Amino acid sequence: MQFGKQNLTTNELIVLSSEMRKREKSLVLAYLMLLMGHLGIHRLYLKRTVSGIIQLALFLVMFISYILFIVLVGIDDTLVDSSLYIPGFIAAGIALVGFIALTIWVIVDACLLPGIVRSWNNNLEQTLIAQIVALRPVGNPENHPGPGQFN
Rank of each mutant, 00 (worst) to 15 (best):
L29N: 08
I129T: 05
F150M: 06
S65E: 06
N122T: 15
P145E: 03
V71A: 09
L34A: 12
L84H: 14
L46W: 04
A130P: 09
H38I: 11
I41Q: 07
I104A: 05
S17V: 00
P87S: 07
P141R: 00
N123K: 14
L113S: 03
R43N: 04
R118N: 14
L34W: 02
M20N: 00
M36D: 06
V138K: 11
L112R: 09
E125F: 01
P114E: 02
P141A: 08
S65L: 04
S83I: 14
L34F: 03
K22C: 02
V50S: 14
F89V: 10
S26Q: 03
L68A: 15
L27Q: 12
M1H: 13
E142I: 07
E24A: 01
E19H: 07
V28D: 05
A130T: 15
V117P: 04
A30I: 10
L44W: 09
S83H: 15
N122V: 05
Q2I: 09
I116W: 12
N11I: 00
V28H: 11
E19A: 04
P145Y: 11
I107S: 01
I70N: 09
D77T: 15
L39M: 13
L72P: 07
A110T: 05
G93F: 07
T9D: 00
L39F: 15
T78K: 12
L34N: 10
L44T: 07
G74I: 07
S82M: 12
V61R: 08
D109W: 03
L35E: 08
L72I: 00
D77N: 13
Q131K: 13
G4D: 00
L44V: 12
M36V: 13
S65D: 09
D81F: 12
G115Q: 11
L27W: 06
D76N: 10
T9N: 00
D76M: 05
G93T: 12
I107H: 02
L128T: 00
I132N: 03
A57I: 15
L58N: 11
A134G: 12
L32P: 03
G115M: 08
K22I: 07
I100T: 05
N121W: 11
D76P: 00
D76K: 01
I90T: 10
